[in-house]
Simulated assay, not measured.
Amino acid sequence: SGGVSPNMVLGQMPTRPALLVRLMDAEGCYGWGEIWANFPPRANLHKAHVVEDVVAPALKGFGFTTPGEVIGFLRERFSIYFLHVGQQQVFEHILAGLDVALWDLALRNAGQSLASNLGIDCRAANTYASSINPLDLEGMVQSHAGMGETGFKLKLGFNDDLDRDFIRQAADVLPAGTRLMVDTNQAWCMSRAKNMLGYLEQFDPVFSEEPIPANSDYADWEALAESTSVPLAAGENIYGVDEFLRMADAGVQYLQPDVAKWGGVTGAMELIRSLPHGVSLWPHFMGTAVGQMAALAITSLGGDQSTCEMDVNANPLRTDLCGDVLTIHDGCVDLPGGPGLAVSPVAEQLQAFQEPAFHNGELN
């Protein structure tokens, strides 16, 4: 763990926790993945215990041809178990991270990148600057505009008057040709959302992310979408292609799956194939370089219609863990040139950020 937490209505992370998983086959080839663990504190340790105690033993010696076969096997084996213990979404997080690791392993084995495996030419992914707070607004905008990024996402949901001031300040400092977007982390009720979106309309934002709770009735999402010209976005708290498509039917124009939280690579690619006309896929991500590279690979498949979230806040798990692999230029990040989804973590960095509860990568 390590890094600086953005200020969010959900609260701040005491550290920037993360959970990486490495799978190795019988020939010694390996793949890296990331399991979502931002909240609550020490979520990474809890999920690591679950992986080691419950899931990993079932994978020893398991043969497969595609990552989907493994995920299907695990769903059949453990869905009732995680239903019984009340941790179905924790199970989804674990499956997502394992799917990323399985794709990384399979691609390394095949000597291919994701793009070459799919027979397409994708060498870079579009990015936008995310999780900007008022105190660092001007500096962050200047810095990331200098890298060619044209989208800047503000964290809202604290106090409506302060949020309006923040939006106005951001609009004043954004360079020509750039646009803002906002993320409320599910904080508004319907009446507040309609009020604030009405105010936002004059600034022509790209979208408003999670203005109401993700599990609100589809009728509420539809009513909110019909009440405003501001496009709605959601996805980091949606599970399953069918649920994403229902949200699109309810008027959500930007779908934001998180490869470390639901579906991994397999789910995201299925969603891309199912996207309705007029709906865009903009992957959500706030974690380490391992998961970020997977999210960027997915983003690249959408071309100019897809842009990936990149946190602006200091986090060496993103900037240092795998070396200098996430440099932003012209608003894009180049994808790794070698086989696999991600560049492997640097051994010294992995050791430096390891939780005290671990020893040589294993739980004590």
Score class of each variant (00 low, 15 high):
2 G>Y: 08
3 G>R: 06
4 V>K: 07
6 P>V: 01
7 N>S: 13
15 T>M: 05
18 A>Y: 07
23 L>Y: 12
24 M>A: 14
25 D>Q: 04
26 A>T: 07
30 Y>M: 12
36 W>Y: 13
36 W>H: 13
39 F>A: 10
42 R>I: 05
48 A>Y: 00
50 V>E: 08
51 V>E: 08
53 D>N: 14
56 A>D: 12
59 L>K: 09
60 K>W: 08
69 E>A: 03
73 F>P: 11
74 L>I: 11
81 Y>N: 11
82 F>D: 03
85 V>E: 11
85 V>D: 10
89 Q>N: 10
91 F>S: 06
99 D>N: 11
111 G>A: 03
114 L>Y: 01
120 I>A: 10
125 A>V: 08
132 I>S: 01
133 N>V: 03
134 P>S: 09
135 L>Q: 09
139 G>R: 00
143 S>M: 08
153 K>V: 04
158 F>T: 05
159 N>T: 09
164 R>Q: 07
166 F>E: 06
168 R>T: 11
169 Q>D: 13
171 A>P: 01
180 L>P: 01
188 W>R: 04
190 M>H: 08
193 A>C: 05
193 A>G: 01
202 Q>Y: 04
206 V>I: 15
210 E>C: 12
218 Y>G: 06
219 A>K: 15
222 E>H: 11
223 A>P: 10
228 T>N: 04
230 V>Y: 05
230 V>N: 07
231 P>M: 09
232 L>I: 03
235 G>H: 14
238 I>G: 07
244 F>E: 10
248 A>R: 00
251 G>M: 00
251 G>H: 00
255 L>G: 05
262 W>R: 03
269 M>D: 14
274 S>G: 01
278 G>F: 00
282 W>Q: 12
282 W>C: 15
287 G>T: 06
291 G>A: 08
296 L>H: 02
298 I>T: 09
302 G>T: 02
311 D>W: 01
314 A>R: 06
316 P>I: 04
317 L>T: 10
318 R>L: 10
321 L>V: 04
328 I>S: 07
331 G>K: 12
332 C>P: 02
334 D>R: 15
336 P>D: 15
340 G>V: 14
341 L>K: 05
344 S>A: 15
344 S>Q: 06
361 G>K: 13
